[in-house]
């Protein structure tokens, strides 16, 4: 898969004074108040913050699911802040990959067909065989080839999230966005998913994720903290955790517990 060759040192994301105001309710809610941020290719960024801090709104803006009220958003060098619905949909399809907290897989649809979904809405036409093959390669990256014909209901939470990651990867996006990807998972499975992300990042894929768990953020390279719609902290992670090491520790602890029990 060409994912490994995507490594680039150019700026993938540039946000300049981004604001987002929701005025659907009685009082307008200023969710994001002037965020300026640059994310370079190959980075692995965690956005943290309490609920209501605006981190999810920022994520939706980054993911082109929403448009900023004010400010400029350059994705891969192009200004996307003024694009219409369909153009944004094409961007999501071609340049962005999404992983959601609730997985958001189509029920009663096999893992492979779920992974194929973004390819069906692409500009280019692929033969059924090509689509099929690429879906399998994508599943291979997350280690789920054996489960290609299983339905989401037959998969564990971690496996479902890996299918969602495979779906996000199928169109070889410039950036992988994950909104609380471990929010619905237990701690061991969370480590497993972070391991998948670290492996992808090591191959050069840019990843931005939202989380409120500090220890999850320590698997990333860079941590951003938001409060009241503003970025209040931006640090490189010093004592970074490695999923493989952590997993070994957990497994060791588990077997020890079994011995003593």
């Amino acid at each position: 898969m060409a994912v490994g060759s995507e490594f680039r040192m150019t700026d993938v994301v540039q946000l300049e004074e981004i604001h987002k105001v929701y005025d659907s309710g009685e009082v307008p809610v200023h969710a994001v108040r002037g965020v300026t941020l640059t994310i370079r290719g190959g980075e692995f960024v965690a956005i943290m913050g309490a609920s209501g801090s605006g981190k999810s709104t920022l994520m939706n803006l980054l993911g082109c699911l929403d448009r900023p009220t004010k400010g400029r958003y350059l994705l891969g060098g192009t200004d996307v802040s003024g694009l219409d619905r369909n153009a944004l949909a094409d961007l999501r399809n071609q340049k962005l990959g999404f992983v959601f907290q609730g997985f958001n897989l189509l029920s009663r649809t096999t893992a492979r067909e779920n992974v194929e979904l973004p390819m069906l809405y692409g500009r280019r036409h692929f033969s059924s065989k090509e689509i099929h093959d690429r879906a399998l390669r994508s599943l291979d990256i997350v280690g789920l080839t054996a489960r290609a014909d299983h339905f989401p209901s037959q998969l564990s939470g971690g496996q479902q999230q890996r299918v969602a990651i495979a779906r996000a990867l199928i169109n070889e996006p410039q950036i992988l966005l994950a909104d609380e990807p471990t929010g619905n998972l237990d701690s061991k499975t969370s480590v497993e998913i972070m391991g998948v992300f670290q492996k992808l990042n090591d191959q050069g894929i840019t990843i931005v994720m939202v989380t409120h768990e500090l220890d999850i953020a320590r698997y990333c390279r860079r941590n951003l903290i938001m409060r009241d719609g503003r970025l209040v902290s931006d640090v490189q992670v010093a004592d970074r955790l490695t999923a493989t090491t952590e997993m070994q520790r957990i497994l060791a602890a588990e077997s020890e517990a079994k011995l003593t029990a």
């Binding site: 619905r85 369909n86 949909a89 399809n93 999404f98 958001n104 973004p118 809405y121 779906r167």
Partner: peptide, 9 residues
């Protein structure tokens, strides 16, 4: 889901 992965309305 379809819209999120790039389907047009």
């Amino acid at each position: 889901i379809r819209l999120a992965v790039g389907a047009h309305g």
